[in-house]
Design a protein around this nucleic acid. Structure first.
Lengths: 330, 330
DNA sequence: TCAGAAAATAAAAACGTTTTTATGCGGAGA
DNA sequence: TCTCCGCATAAAAACGTTTTTATTTTCTGA
């Protein structure tokens, strides 16, 4: 598996290694003729530089990394695509690294020597955060609020989304409420819950623990959990806020299966405004989180920290309610 | 940005660099006490190896690469996720590289020194294929049929899918046909077309050039193109096969907008069976391509070529028709 | 024609690892 | 007591680049 290296090019072209390197990297110190010749030889030999060698020596890799633990769901494709667009505009590459455990992820973040990292689903805890800070890797978190030197966050204003959902349901005259939460300990799910219950409380309504359901952000899991629930003949709340659209839809599927009609018997509002939400029947009322803006903004913020250095920031994306057919006034 | 290197660990632990390396890589030649001590020091210093350095020296990187030019659409998330699962099972990592042009992509495929490559949307031409072959990088193509040493393909049997679609529409008694093609020169779109028109021809029906529409695999683009078409008051064929579901849905949206009813006036069958297809109204009749199997199979094949070496193969995934509400007999 | 400067190229060091080869040391056998 | 072996560790080479420093060549002007 002997690949052609810069040495081979040098030998073939009859020049030194450093001359080849200069020719390849457009350092304009070479005689144009020499440069052209080298380029021709490199082309002819199908020379492709070993990026490991290159990155080992030079400090900037011109690569931005997205670090996630999964790509499941309709959300990631958009994120990656919008990130890529912004990277391309600025002469950076985008690599996506998937790791299910923290050690692997840290090894990738730090070991790959990317110029900057966007961390989404990272299982990164306090301890890793400290390392990141110490190693000075510019980082944008998409799943938590942190602000430090070279560390920023770009999150949904989930608290506010929760409030909006609550206000909306209240405005329809509802009195009994439920919440379908996302993955345990998930930042967004928690914030949405806090905002939601805060508004309800303010209005003198409450959200009892037995009306908080587990959805794990997943359609199937929500469906199953809801089915189980309905078999117990539990009385459902009249208005439900789901931590994301996937859950809302799984919930509705289960209700339909059990002949509970939406929105007549139960109103449901989701969050994200995914593609499917407008096609499902009934069309899902939801909160548009503007998630298709997130990728581009994250990269912009990262580049800012890379170039102009230093200070991080916390940006929040505000969403807005999209009224469709899954909610009804009482 | 001075990171902690193996040298630092060595100094701190009072041993040589090679000893540290051995400790870290579980080469059982060290005194257990020494090893434990080194591990403790490495942990304490938050040592994380520079993967560029490592990969430069050792020939296997234990990384598989997925190379695409975009992640847009509902398809990629599933692909990545299923690939990842299979990688994990086998102790490999999965990195995703996105590049919009062939040179960049080749640089990544060859320059990153991945142990194997899955190429999906790669703009890889004949010339690059030759380089790949020469450089002996185990490769699985998802978008074309190639078979050579260390090069395999895992494609949808798009020709057969086209045939199936044609047969199905014929069985409903249709006589006039249309096709919405995907991206230009796309392998799958072309094959579907070939199979489709072959069956139609066999039945004595034809597919006239003006009934071949451009959809680019994209919902919006298909929608726009169809709207433009309808404004010209063109007579539409009664039965249409779309190269993918996205296109079929864009097509239906345009028809709805113009009060052409599906399936009464126009029957449409898609391809892929994406999530949305069962929620759109009317529910889309389509071909289930079993695409959620592709990722796992691709990785399996790659590992086979990496381990047992040599011969490639061409595997085809057969699909099956999912009858729903967008087609009607005449 | 030749010194000296400028231009072009070459040599060498460095990046952080792994791997191969070398060294030091304690103990077994004579 | 000395040799030899095996164990534990250290030193050195190598991977393929870029970058810094050194050398050679060419040009200028008196």
């Amino acid at each position: 598996m002997q690949k052609v290296t810069i040495k081979d090019v040098a030998r073939e072209a009859g020049v030194s290694i450093s001359t080849v390197s200069n020719a390849l990297n457009n350092v304009d110190v070479l005689h144009p003729k020499t440069k052209a010749h080298i380029l021709e030889v490199a082309e002819r030999l199908h020379y492709i530089p070993n990026l490991n060698g290159r990155n080992l020596k030079s400090k900037s890799t011109k690569v931005l990394g997205l670090f996630v633990n999964s790509m499941k769901g309709p959300y990631y494709g958009t994120l990656v695509d919008t990130m890529y667009l912004e990277c391309e505009k600025n002469g950076y590459e985008l690599n996506v690294f998937i790791s299910k455990n923290r050690t692997d992820m840290m090894t990738n973040i730090l070991g790959r020597r990317v110029d900057g990292a966007v961390i989404l689903n990272g299982w990164i805890g306090k301890e890793e955060e400290i390392i990141l800070r110490k190693e000075k890797v510019p980082t944008v978190f998409l799943d938590r609020e942190v602000c430090a030197a070279r560390i920023s966050s770009l999150v949904f204003d989930s608290y506010r989304q929760g409030e909006e959902a609550g206000r909306y349901l209240l405005s329809l005259g509802h009195k009994s409420f439920g919440y379908i939460q996302g993955a345990v300990n998930n930042y967004d799910s928690g914030e949405r819950f806090r905002g939601y219950s805060h508004i309800l409380q303010e209005a003198g309504c409450s959200l009892t623990p037995e009306n908080i359901f587990d959805g794990f952000f997943d359609r199937d899991l929500t469906y199953q959990a809801t089915m189980k629930l309905l078999q117990k003949e539990r009385k459902l709340p009249r208005a439900v806020f789901a931590a994301n659209d996937q859950s809302a839809i799984g919930f509705m599927e289960a209700l339909r299966e059990c002949n509970v009609s939406v929105p007549q018997e139960v109103s449901i509002i989701g969050c994200d405004n995914i593609d499917l939400s407008q096609w499902f029947t009934p069309r899902l009322t939801t909160i548009d989180t503007a998630y298709e803006k997130q990728g581009g903004l994250a990269v912009k913020q990262l580049l800012k920290m890379i170039r102009e250095e230093k200070k991080g920031s916390i940006q929040k994306l505000v969403g807005k309610i999209i009224e469709r057919d899954s909610c009804q006034s009482i």
